[in-house]
Design a protein around this nucleic acid. Sequence first.
DNA 1: ATTGAGTGAGACATTGATGTCTCATTCGGT
DNA 2: ACCGAATGAGACATCAATGTCTCACTCAAT
Lengths: 192, 192
Amino acid sequence: MSHSVYGRLMSVDRTQVLRAAAALLSRKATATMDEVARAAGIGRATLHRQFAGRDALVRALEELGLQELEAAQDRARTDEGPADEAVRRLVAEVEPVAPLLSFLVTENQLFEGDQQNEGWARLDARVSDLFRRGQEEGTFRIDLTPAWLTEALYGLIGSGAWAVQDGRVAAKDFQYMIVELLLGGARRSVEK
Amino acid sequence: MSHSVYGRLMSVDRTQVLRAAAALLSRKATATMDEVARAAGIGRATLHRQFAGRDALVRALEELGLQELEAAQDRARTDEGPADEAVRRLVAEVEPVAPLLSFLVTENQLFEGDQQNEGWARLDARVSDLFRRGQEEGTFRIDLTPAWLTEALYGLIGSGAWAVQDGRVAAKDFQYMIVELLLGGARRSVEK
DNA sequence: ATTGAGTGAGACATTGATGTCTCATTCGGT
DNA sequence: ACCGAATGAGACATCAATGTCTCACTCAAT
């Protein structure tokens, strides 16, 4: 039957195409299907055979992003140890997915009406729980709601990703800048 | 010559159209020219007479936004008094323009190549100067660069605007959430 | 009442991206 | 060497938004 060990027949590696698409669309959100195809090194027809249309491509990209983000959360073990250290680990693990995350978040707030993937709710809930846990443990202040802290985390990651892309912030400082601002704020504090 | 005191004849108030466009595009960035026209209560033809095309509209919107942002900076007197209080005033003054600012920032990072309005540079410089001043006065930590703090401020304002729009954060908490996180961070500190 | 600038509605052409299809070619499996 | 699945390139139709134009109408100024 000529099926390879990968369950697919000599075909273009779907995941590889998705990664190329993610890399391109994260930089240029308005890239055309043709550009995506060329970026992935395949023909436009083939791209269309893999993904019914632009919507399908974006939704697949969303799946990929959500998977990687959940995996990042797992690796960060956000429910273990001190909450602030967990946040640190989370940002570190999420960094590689930051540009894609930024793209998907923007894409999401564009199309409002259409129901959105429930994966985001799960993701939000987990991040939110982390901040809540930190509050209950007395590590985080309680006057900033977990929902806002979650939102702010996404925002800072997005800003960080763009700042790095534009060269306004060194890539090596990405984690530090985000975590320090999120946790410690800009004001000079007594401690440390 | 029948010119009115407003220098224009009975025509649609350009600024009013721009405000309507800003309100719509801030919520739905992909709104069509026809939608913008209807939102402004005018015909599509008239909209076209006022703004050569979509690009021209966006550029005019950019002008408006930059004007209002500079005005907000002026009112906030960002070069007076303690830096942290200046930041507080700045966020308060910028709040009404937040959705538009968010739209313009997103729009800007979409079209990369084309030279961007120098107004942004002026704006960035002023915000950046504020943070730098805070650092020199010993109010702000010096391990977070002014460039990053500026970027982060934009990001948080954008996140805040969306969070309010989606009802995840109460409108009345907008300023507080942003300023407190930006200045104080999430971690519970000894002071206060 | 007359005038004319400004307008809204709609017809129309244009443009750019999308989606579909065909066909010759490539390449792995046999 | 052969076979067939999968591909790349390109032709083609479609679709949505844009931009242009015409024309009848409104309304303020006179």
